[in-house]
């Protein structure tokens, strides 16, 4: 779907992107993570053809990005806005026509979306008369109304109350079901784990991590197991620092070269195994760890 190869971009006094390679497969939700100033916005702007890379290529569906691709992309910037004095309907018509829809097509699509998000009654209101959350919904419609095949959402949930955030989340999932590829740039790790199939991390202009959620988690698992026992047959060595509460002993142990089964059968000799679970890091933990590691290099 989207293939970014060796892209570099530098501004007057700093490098925004260094040799970035990225492949976004079709039909996935792709999480683009990174601290502020890492280069995410620059990368997104390059894909949107707002700015041009210094070197490297960006290909969409196997062809170098061209102005004709504008129609295929829907973009919700992190900092967003609408014309305050313009009516919702006129505004949506304007944005969808700028994306290349014909007037009739735009009307049909806008009507559908207004109905879908249950906001038909707002169509003659001016944006300045809407609440922030309401305006965000309109903004979301403006982003997807031209049926883009690639949707780029920069912090899509900021500014939404939990109810509306849930609605938008479901819309994103539904679009994915229909085959839309979504790039989600966010700091909210919990939404990344819930939504994304694939993540890439950028720090200080470089990509530091890339892969499916499963791959990433697996490659960063510390190979440590959480174990709880009761009815001890033997004493637990004190260096395992076990904790005792409610008749249960709890501690963690690294595999240390053994297979999980070997470790488990070892444990069975100590007593009754109540639980035996691998400690899997959250994306957030990986993110923080990786950013710190790459920053201190």
């Amino acid at each position: 779907m989207l293939q970014i190869t060796q892209v570099n971009k530098s501004y007057e006094n700093h490098r925004a992107l260094t040799d970035v390679d990225l492949f976004v497969p079709k039909g996935v939700i792709f999480g683009l993570l990174g601290p502020n100033g890492a280069g995410k916005t620059t990368l997104i702007r390059i894909v949107n053809q707002i700015i041009e890379q210094d070197s490297g290529t960006v290909e969409l569906d196997g062809r170098t990005l061209s102005p004709n691709d504008i129609r295929k992309i829907g973009y919700l910037p992190e900092e967003r806005g609408l014309y305050k004095k313009m009516k919702v309907w006129d505004q949506l018509i304007y944005f969808s026509r700028l994306k290349g829809l014909s007037e009739n097509e735009a009307k049909v699509q806008i009507k559908n979306w207004l109905e879908k998000l249950d906001v038909v009654s707002w169509k003659d209101k001016k944006i300045e008369d809407l609440s922030k959350g309401m305006a965000q919904k309109i903004q979301f419609i403006a982003t997807v109304v031209h049926r883009p095949t690639l949707l780029i959402l920069d912090e899509p949930f900021s500014g939404f109350d939990p109810v509306n955030a849930e609605i938008i989340k479901n819309e994103i999932l539904e679009l994915k079901e229909k085959g839309t590829t979504v790039i989600l740039s966010t700091h909210r790790m919990e939404s990344v784990e819930l939504l994304c199939d694939h993540v890439a991390m950028i720090n200080r202009s470089r990509k530091i991590l890339d892969g499916t959620i499963r791959e990433v988690k697996r490659s960063f698992r510390p190979e440590v197991f959480k174990i709880s026992l009761n009815y001890l047959k033997r004493d637990i060595p004190m260096e395992w620092t076990p904790k005792f509460s409610d008749d249960v002993w709890k501690f963690t142990l690294p595999l240390a070269g053994k297979t999980p089964n070997q470790l488990l059968s070892e444990m069975m000799e100590f007593g009754e195994v109540l639980s035996f679970r691998e400690q899997i890091p959250s994306i957030e933990e990986i993110f923080i760890h990786q950013v710190q590691a790459s920053t201190h290099e």
Partner: peptide
């Protein structure tokens, strides 16, 4: 200034030059 300060411009320039 309006388009710039309300950030509409970011959406606009993703649609046209």
């Amino acid at each position: 200034i309006e388009e710039k300060s309300t950030r509409i411009v970011e959406i606009l320039v993703s649609s046209l030059k």
